[in-house]
Design a protein around this nucleic acid. Structure first.
Lengths: 330, 330
DNA sequence: ATAGATTTTGCTACCGGTAGCAAACGTGCA
DNA sequence: TGCACGTTTGCTACCGGTAGCAAAATCTAT
């Protein structure tokens, strides 16, 4: 049984298909009598308008592609929740695209473009700038935005949390607490400049105390990778030579690092090793971790993204200020 | 600058638009010469086919709506990762729909239907059966599937993890460990029958020892809600009257319960109170929790869902067997 | 009753592809 | 050279809507 079309309903109701359309268009010029007649016929035939056809005619799909590559970060889930809710509140639908080895940004952007999405949001994905600048992906396609990550790319505005301000606040807190031998754990080395946190943290200690940062890097942004990186460092360096505070590029890494420090090396956090994360993911608040971390203003960021997508705000990079969440770990 | 259409490319290349289409259709009847000519013209005009128009003509969008309402459960993220990856591997795209107070199942299903999705997956969402049975949503629309939850609804097959088998395994383990006073924490009371775990757990103890289950329920499926439910119970019941093992409907609840038991009531887990979860979410493996839990066979479930969507397998309810993951907490 | 204004309805053309048939083309063989 | 045959190309019709104009119907005022 095929679905009924406006034409079918029109025949059933004894009017033209344009009258049917009008009955379903709020504010259209139509008499109550015809509207009622049409709606009744539509009900009988179980008619539901075809949004695909509408999108084709109006060239607006009200679909937004959201690219994600980092499903190991628990912080992504509530963020994604807010993003989808906000999009839906504006009548937009989320096309969730999983970027991985089998499905690159190029794939994703090409596909989203051909599906005529209204916008493409790179939600914290790790990409090389060349990919977007070299490639012809930019021209003529839907507007692109980078959310929760930096972007230096012309024409691709970023909506992110100001790393310099955040790191300054974190650094100040650590300095006051008396930590003097800082370490930094980055995820996915080649792309870690993406967040600017490493750079800012390094610069902070350089300026404040003239000390050199101990750097380590995890394979990916996940608790397991963070655990492994911490394990490598701790088993390599003698207790007396170790850092006294470890800043992790995000909470996922910090959870892994804290687990290893405590359970495999018997270190007390923060007494033997203080740990700081970034994102304020849910487990950070748990007494099991009590992780000092930095909370991104996700509500503001989501709102800003939506405003740009809908052209209610200029499409240019914006940085928001988050807030330090001090807990037991540092 | 508008996007180029097949007609534009045709004019540019000096052929008809059907020849252009053929140049982009694998296996179509076309000479190498024309194909080259067309591809070159297409390149010049930066032509990209419009999948919306194709979908309209072929009535296949290769889009699958995935409904989620439970973003507080960390288990959802890796599961969603697998699901999207598997869909993408089959050329399907995920329309992620966030079910919440402002956007009901009815909204979501109506919208997805009008967008002509190829299938709708209710991914662990809590819905009342009447909603799907009463409503005309079923008829004529895309096929619907329930993933990671039970479904008694005619025509809406479920792909889930066998609760009876799972609970039997968990129960057997707890019995062997010597626990005798079991408690169960459900999420979202009105819908908790959805998972069948409570029922199975109750029946298990009834049959095995003839003991009555102590039941508590959380407002939602989240760590916070689990914490609150545990707090209510522990502060109400004197230490000597308490249960000795608490089975939580999912890990999110278990994390909250364990946090409260340890940090607010000073209980040792599992000595004073053993705790069991369900899902084997990432933090369960962390030494900070060491949660004994049950792992759903997500890979199998995803594969089964895809097979049903693509009609490679009969569209009927299937139950898979997961496996018990024993850790320190019980 | 009638002219004029206003509302309602129907129409053509279009969005950008696909399906499948018919005509044009090229080739091999008698 | 002519014909049959297979391949390539172009065509009409269609998918299910929208835009905006023209015709028809209704309303208002004289």
């Amino acid at each position: 049984m095929k679905r009924a079309t406006a034409q079918n309903v029109a025949t059933e109701a004894g009017v033209s298909k344009w009258t049917v359309i009008r009955a379903f268009t709020p504010g259209a010029s139509i008499t109550e009598a015809s509207r009622a007649k049409v709606l009744e016929a539509a009900e009988r035939l179980n008619y539901r308008p075809n949004l695909l056809a509408r999108s084709l005619a109006t060239s607006a799909t009200h679909q937004v592609a959201v690219l994600v590559d980092d499903f190991a970060n628990p912080h992504k889930l509530p963020f994604l929740e807010k993003l989808t809710a906000a999009l839906q509140a504006e009548g937009l639908v989320t096309m969730l695209i999983n970027i991985n080895q089998h499905y690159s940004h190029v794939h994703a952007i090409l596909n989203a473009d051909q599906r005529q999405v209204d916008a493409i949001v790179l939600f914290g994905t790790a990409f090389r700038d060349e990919m977007l600048t070299d490639h012809k992906l930019g021209r003529g396609g839907p507007p692109m935005f980078v959310l929760a990550r930096d972007s230096q790319i012309e024409g691709v505005p970023a909506i992110s949390c100001d790393a310099v301000v955040a790191i300054a606040e974190i650094g100040k807190h650590l300095l006051e607490k008396g930590y003097r031998r800082p370490g930094f754990m980055a995820g996915a080395r080649t792309l870690s400049t993406a967040l600017g946190r490493r750079r800012a943290f390094k610069a902070f200690w350089q300026t404040a105390l003239g000390v050199e940062l101990v750097e380590m890097s995890a394979e990916r942004y996940s608790a397991e990778a963070g655990a492994q990186a911490a394990r490598d460092y701790l088993s390599k360096v003698a207790p007396e030579d170790r850092i006294d505070v470890l800043m992790c590029e995000n909470d996922a890494l910090a959870f892994g690092a804290m687990d290893v420090a405590r359970s495999e090396f018997g270190l007390r956090v923060p007494k033997d090793l203080a740990i700081v994360g970034f994102d304020n993911a849910a487990p950070a608040a748990s007494p099991a971790y009590g992780l000092t971390t930095y909370e991104q203003p996700t509500d503001q960021m989501v709102k800003a993204a939506i405003d740009m997508i809908l052209e209610r705000a200029p499409r240019e990079t914006v940085n928001f200020q988050g807030k330090l969440v001090v807990r037991e770990s540092a």
